[in-house]
Design a protein around this nucleic acid. Structure first.
Lengths: 123, 123
DNA sequence: CGGGATCCGCATAGATACTG
DNA sequence: CAGTATCTATGCGGATCCCG
């Protein structure tokens, strides 16, 4: 780690972060190509505004490709770029660490988040 | 990637994310142990409130250890836990990808962020 | 010294309506 | 259909004050 690694990390994080980006990427990775409306339907709760904004950022970073069909009604398809495929190892690393970390937390605090859910329902 | 990998990713990201966490971790990784006030001085612009909040989250996740000396005036030292050491490969991965990605962006859009800096200084 | 409590401002997300 | 424009709301970060 040299002195400027932090900003690089933050740059990388920008791409994954934002309430919706991980799940957008997940949808595109697993489904290949999706229309705007399909994407929206597959992500409950997201608004057009947010979806558009997040997709634009991902597009800027060359992770997502935007293909516009000039027709009425319009049709726009989104997919992972070739360069974007290259983040899979990274996502894999993060995901794996995340999984083991969840287990670690369970070991420390006990697995009472399940109980918590039950309690919440009781109300 | 199974159906619930997203939440795991988000769990993992929670730890790195937040305006100040990367640099807090950086300080602790490079300096070993730091007092609250030393940490604050090493991170220009951060408020006590934020520093406290971020440290508490990191502590909850067992990444950072908080050692309190019961004395007047108080003294509190922070360090990376043994478990916390385990995130280095993850940080490494993210950092490396971040670096190569910055280069990729430079290739696509041209390297005009350096020029931008120059312009900013001109003022 | 190392915080906690409180108040405030701004950015950002959400909701709604409109458009090519 | 795939957005944009506009308005509103809320939640987070910053500033300030206080306390053991």
């Amino acid at each position: 780690m040299d002195d400027h690694d932090n900003c690089k990390i933050e740059t990388a994080l920008e791409i994954l972060v934002g309430k919706w980006k991980p799940i957008i990427l997940y949808q595109l990775f697993t489904n290949g190509t999706l229309r705007f409306s399909e994407l929206q339907k597959s992500i409950p709760g997201i608004t057009k505004k947010m979806l558009t904004a997040q997709l634009r950022e991902l597009e800027y970073h060359d992770i997502v490709h935007r293909k516009v069909y000039l027709q009425i009604p319009p049709k726009v398809e989104y997919s992972i770029t070739e360069y974007g495929q290259g983040i899979t190892p990274l996502i894999q690393s993060i995901s794996e660490w995340g999984q083991s970390h969840v287990k670690h937390l369970a070991e420390i605090y006990g697995d009472d988040r399940i109980l918590k859910k039950t309690v919440e329902v009781q109300d």
